[in-house]
Computed example of a mutant assay.
Amino acid sequence: MSEHRSTDRTPQYPLRCDHCHYPIPDELQEGTDGQYCSESCREAADDESTMPDPDAYKRVVTGIEPLDSLVPNGIPADSFLLLSGDEGTRRSELLTELVWRAIERGEPAIVVAYANPPTAALERFFGNGWNVLPALESDRLRIVDCFTHRLSDREEFLETCSQWQTFVGEAAADSIVAVEEPSDGPAVAEALHEALDALEMTETGLVAIDSLDELGRLLQRERVHDFVTEVRGTVCTARYVPIVAGATTAGSDSYPEDEYVFDGIVDLRLTDQLAPETRLKQLGVRKLIGAQFLPQWITYEYEPARGLFAFGPSTDAREVYDLANGPRVSDRR
């Protein structure tokens, strides 16, 4: 009679280290005040060194319904995430909402603004009904300005600003880090690190780059690659601060940059295959290193204040796009 063997290959680690909080796979190391996985952790604990629970800072639940439904355990905080999609997919709204949700969680955030001046970048929040003035005042939001110094006449631009833009610009003045040479990748990286240090962003917060398209117009492809590689290492990996960047596919299947430099890629697309004469928006995760994700497309739409929301295939698209009366979605998934 053959011996019965368990088919369960999942390792069972009943104990966790009191210093690093990871499972203890081998013989535990006893300390004066706990149990540890290694001598390094035991000695660090004896020196009264403490480590936070890795689950508290190594995963980010974004608060955006379509994205979180595909990545239920959260996005690794050491990720550089590319939002890749054609025009009309609300890519800019998604980028803006990612920043806002971080601020809502009480975390700091940085926007690297290539595509718009700082006041226009902030106006995207106000246009959604998201008031970022308190975040600017409490030093939880900074704008790395890679736009203004590209203008041929900055003084004329400032003089023609509306009263509201002037007010927002003055309110945000202390939160803007100006980059005089936005075509210089190292200079942009230095400005980003200046903002990170000012907001004490380590193991908290989020950086958004708007957008890689504008960055690519200023830098050669190799230099864009170098910039992404550098900030991925010095911001995401070293600080556990995720970076999200938007880029258009420009009618092609994917962003033309070398995709292996990104830890995650979220695709946004338009499709007319689900509803006759209706171009629906869909979101899918193509790649995400270090996290499980559902390999499917989520249909979504956008509403000011609410942000992006998902709805299922059984939902009548006419209910979602009842623009006169607002969304009336009863079956989101």
Rank of each mutant, 00 (worst) to 15 (best):
174 D>T: 11
11 P>C: 07
1 M>S: 13
77 A>C: 09
4 H>T: 10
147 F>K: 05
69 S>P: 08
213 D>H: 08
45 A>Q: 08
246 G>F: 03
64 I>G: 03
111 V>I: 10
223 R>W: 04
211 S>A: 13
190 E>Y: 06
193 H>L: 12
107 E>C: 08
287 K>L: 10
137 E>A: 12
212 L>S: 04
2 S>Q: 08
106 G>T: 01
33 D>E: 15
109 A>M: 01
102 A>L: 03
270 L>A: 11
137 E>S: 06
78 D>N: 03
162 S>C: 06
229 T>V: 01
306 R>K: 14
145 D>P: 12
74 G>R: 04
86 D>T: 15
45 A>I: 11
103 I>W: 04
18 D>F: 11
168 V>Q: 00
95 L>A: 09
315 T>W: 09
243 I>E: 05
28 L>Y: 13
166 T>D: 15
15 L>R: 13
332 R>F: 03
277 E>P: 07
162 S>K: 06
184 D>T: 09
264 G>A: 15
39 E>P: 00
40 S>N: 06
290 G>F: 14
320 V>A: 08
150 R>M: 10
20 C>K: 08
145 D>R: 13
259 E>L: 11
160 T>R: 06
154 R>Y: 01
285 V>R: 05
202 T>M: 07
232 R>T: 06
294 L>F: 02
65 E>H: 02
221 R>A: 07
251 G>D: 11
111 V>Q: 09
93 E>Y: 01
53 D>E: 08
218 L>G: 05
222 E>G: 11
88 G>V: 00
